[in-house]
């Protein structure tokens, strides 16, 4: 079954979507969209470093993403610039340094487009093993960290006072983000990873009455977007990564239409709360 490149793409894409769903919810709740973007963009610097020093690609991408997020935390503590401006500086400069480094290395030929926009149709069995293995690790960690993460999203102070160690949860969450970026880079590409984090989570919001349900729905909606996007890309002969993001966007727009289940549920909730 996995002999077919299309089936491999489907299995890999669904694996990534299931993983990005719950993480994406936290990105949305904690308003970390730009932060996720910055970590993703730094992945290209990781790619360049891996080529330059002949290191494992995944490991270097992961390490650079972690380093950038730690650097960001450090700079935020100094409070010299707003978080917004710092993110803008780090996001684009890491991407630019990565591009410049790659251009310098005339001895290697790499398909830059594959890194930037993904190359899901070239997924191998090893990639699938990595995506599902890594994805299960990420999901297990999210389940384990669920209560501290949700509690500190609502209030860092309550979480700290009541012994949930929010700082540790936040740090581990960053490692998980870096891991997800490293394993999903090949599927949707560096520039589009944040879309797969945010759009399914935002879509799931309309249908969810609890954080837990929103996380599960985000995974399922992401998987649906992968399936729809891949079939669309096959049918219209469009690039697969962007097609997945377009499919996710269409699902989001669909969820906004009046009369959809989410809107009715919300209207009912509003009536129930304030009679």
């Amino acid at each position: 079954m996995l002999d077919d490149f299309f089936v491999r793409a489907m299995v890999a894409g669904i694996g990534v979507a299931l993983t990005t769903g719950p993480l994406g919810c936290f990105v949305v709740w904690r308003r970390m969209a730009y932060f996720g973007d910055t970590m993703a963009h730094s992945a290209l610097l990781g790619v360049a470093i891996s080529l330059l020093f002949d290191l494992n690609l995944l490991l270097s991408v992961f390490a650079v993403a972690v380093a950038v997020s730690l650097l960001l935390l450090f700079l935020q503590r100094r409070q010299a610039l707003s978080a917004d401006a710092l993110l803008g500086i780090l996001s684009h400069s890491t991407l630019a340094i990565g591009l410049v480094l790659v251009a310098f290395m005339s001895w290697v030929r790499i398909d830059l487009m594959a890194f930037l926009f993904g190359d899901i149709l070239a997924v191998t069995r090893e990639d699938i093993a990595l995506i599902w293995g890594g994805g299960l690790v990420v999901l297990a960690a999210v389940v384990w960290l669920w209560r501290p993460l949700v509690a500190s999203t609502v209030s860092e102070d309550i979480a700290e006072a009541e012994g949930l160690k929010p700082e540790r949860a936040r740090l581990l969450f960053m490692l998980l983000m870096a891991l997800v970026i490293a394993i999903s880079m090949k599927i949707v590409g560096i520039l589009l990873i944040t879309a797969l984090l945010i759009i399914p989570a935002a879509t799931a919001r309309r249908f969810s009455a609890s954080p837990e349900r929103m996380a599960v729905f985000a995974s399922l909606i992401g998987a649906l977007a992968v399936v729809g996007g891949l079939f669309g890309s096959l049918h219209y002969d469009t690039p697969s990564g962007p097609s997945i993001v377009v499919a996710a966007l269409l699902l989001f727009i669909l969820s906004l239409l009046p009369g959809s289940r989410g809107n009715r549920a919300e209207a009912a909730a509003n009536r129930g709360v304030r009679p």
Binding site: V28, W29, R31, T153, V154, S155, R205, S208, R213
Partner: peptide, 10 residues
């Protein structure tokens, strides 16, 4: 305490 409205929380 401010809760982002995007988090569904009963």
């Amino acid at each position: 305490l401010s809760i982002d409205w995007t988090m569904p929380l009963t």
